[in-house]
Design a protein around this nucleic acid. Structure first.
Lengths: 170, 170
DNA sequence: AATAACATGTAACGCGTTACATGATTAC
DNA sequence: GTAATCATGTAACGCGTTACATGTTATT
């Protein structure tokens, strides 16, 4: 049950509405870590509120409800992060494809790897400029910067791995 | 629907039984790319056989059925690998925890990062010796070696990212 | 003889996606 | 006034996990 902890984490950073949380998933989490749609987020927020992990901090226009994390929520989040072993359940379509590459003939495999490397390079460049802006703008403590740094390194990894695999295929 | 393509990929490498496929998921795929239990694998194999993507190549002791991929199955696998855009759906608990780290106080965060780095280093070493054995044993073409190389690089990435993050926290 | 490993299957439940549904506010 | 965006909610369906269930073969 990671969704609730992702939500608690985002709310620990700052109070947000379900709508905003949905946007945050799309903006950063979804690409590297976790995805969720609004149809899953709203009911989960309701449950978290029921359990006292979060509370409505503000009600705005268009029925907007801004939630804030409570002390109980913070405790739950910390316990999940620190106490539980960071056992890692992973599903990653791209990596799966990378692993199944050896089932293709060399021509197909190389075409795939070439596209993959190009794509990683492009995403890397894009993220790099974003990060540069972020770093220039302010002393950006926390959140997004950790994600971005991981992203930078992961794109570089994919690009380099693809180059290695291409060389190996010959 | 990636499970069926993972199965097709494993069967393209070599014919296997449901039991063996379950072991293969546990051995390599599960850690980096995809996981599946036997309770999901057996029904999916039955469906794939129904659709002519795979066929029973051999029946052995204890009701063991060895499946082999068919031409139709190979075509389906290739199409999934090559034709479809490698859009990447990801869920990764460890990365999620890494992103939510900034919600912890510095002491907790550093403890987490320190464990994470140690763990990555240990896994890296273990995998390194495994790979060395594999490389020494034979000219291991394909499959496992791609996965292993990715694993090596990913563990190193996590270790280095954790070091970066610790430095940043101060 | 007992235990571990091999081998397959299904049912119940929970999580996640897609689609359906509705309305308010802002920008052009 | 019209389109885009903001904002929330639910229902149906499919995918994935846990648990239940059973039997065979190899090892000690």
């Amino acid at each position: 049950m990671s969704l609730r902890h992702a939500l608690l984490g985002l709310l620990a950073d700052e109070p947000s509405s379900g709508y905003t949380l949905t946007r945050k998933f799309e903006a950063s989490l979804e690409r590297y870590a976790w995805s969720a749609r609004h149809s899953q987020i709203y009911p989960e927020l309701a449950r978290l509120a029921d359990e006292g992990m979060i509370e409505v901090a503000e009600e705005g226009a268009r029925g907007r409800r801004t939630y804030a994390i409570t002390d109980a929520g913070r405790a739950e989040l910390r316990s999940w992060l620190v106490d539980q072993p960071p056992y890692t359940s992973v599903r990653n379509v791209l990596v799966l494809k990378m692993f199944l590459l050896s089932t293709l003939d060399p021509v197909d495999a190389k075409a795939f790897l070439s596209h993959l490397a190009d794509n990683a390079e492009r995403e890397l460049e894009e993220l790099r400029t974003q990060v540069a802006e972020l770093d220039a703008a302010e002393g950006t403590q926390g959140f997004g910067r950790f994600a971005a740094e991981y992203g930078l390194r992961e794109y570089a990894l994919v690009r380099d791995w693809a180059a290695w695999a291409m060389e190996r295929i010959g």
